[in-house]
Amino acid sequence: MEHVIECKNLTHYYGDKLVLNDLNLSVEKGRIFGILGKNGMGKTTTINILMGFLRPTSGQCLVFGEESHKLSPATRQKIGLLHEGHLAYDFMTIRQVENFYSRFFPNWKADYYWDLMGKLGLSDNHKIKNMSCGQRSQVVLGLIFAQDPELLILDDYSMGLDPGYRALFIDYLQEYVREKNKTVFLTSHIIQDVEKVVDDTIIMGHQKLLLKMPLVALKEGFHRYEFRNQNAIGHIAADDKVVTNVEYVNDKVTLYSFKSLNDIKAHLKSLGISVSEIAEIPMTLEEAFIGLTGKY
């Protein structure tokens, strides 16, 4: 399978502080990847390395086969970047920014841009700096679509957007990506939105990749079990190949695992914990994310 992004043994330090430790990651062509991780887990560092704005301490990150910090102009032409905060040349107007970008991309599809701008109902001479964050997000998305890139990297696209603009963003993105078979690598703090659009999830833990798998496989294969037993408190180890995470609240024990209910029961029995009633509780992606990474 062709890899659009391939990071090998990525390690990065800020001074003495280790942020990424031997991270390996690959992104296959034509799929939508959502990278999730709590603050301080190295998500932004990974994105910055991927975008070529940070050189890793060791290891390498290849985008279309080229090292991300020295991408050729031809390769940059194939990548649509959405920077955190919907960064744009806000000293330009709607028309000026289109005029500017169109000269850099031979496959420029102006219709995509003007279609989105038409929905904003603003004059072509409206300055970007006078727009709301939501309006600006539409300008940036329109420019990326018009660029017609093969790979879209969207860094925290939901930041600052109200629910309406978030829904609009996701709707347009889904339509565009499905229709044109693009590869997307996105991050967001709004996991419910990620759930709607991604094929694969990448979850980052402290300095490392916790998992990378199709969303469907995660939703079907990752389970949450609950039971009550005062004697079990403190006796179940997380990350012991059966139990991924464990939480205790009074006598309630919550286990997160990729194993089936029978496997869990057998595991508890082997630990000498007798359980009369154990139930599987369905999870949203957000709950699964918390189950994997922990609440703290």
Partner: peptide, 13 residues
């Protein structure tokens, strides 16, 4: 706001 990143991503040396 690090807007220079926009310029650096343009397909030009």
């Amino acid at each position: 706001r690090n807007r220079m990143r926009l310029s650096y991503h343009l397909p030009i040396n």
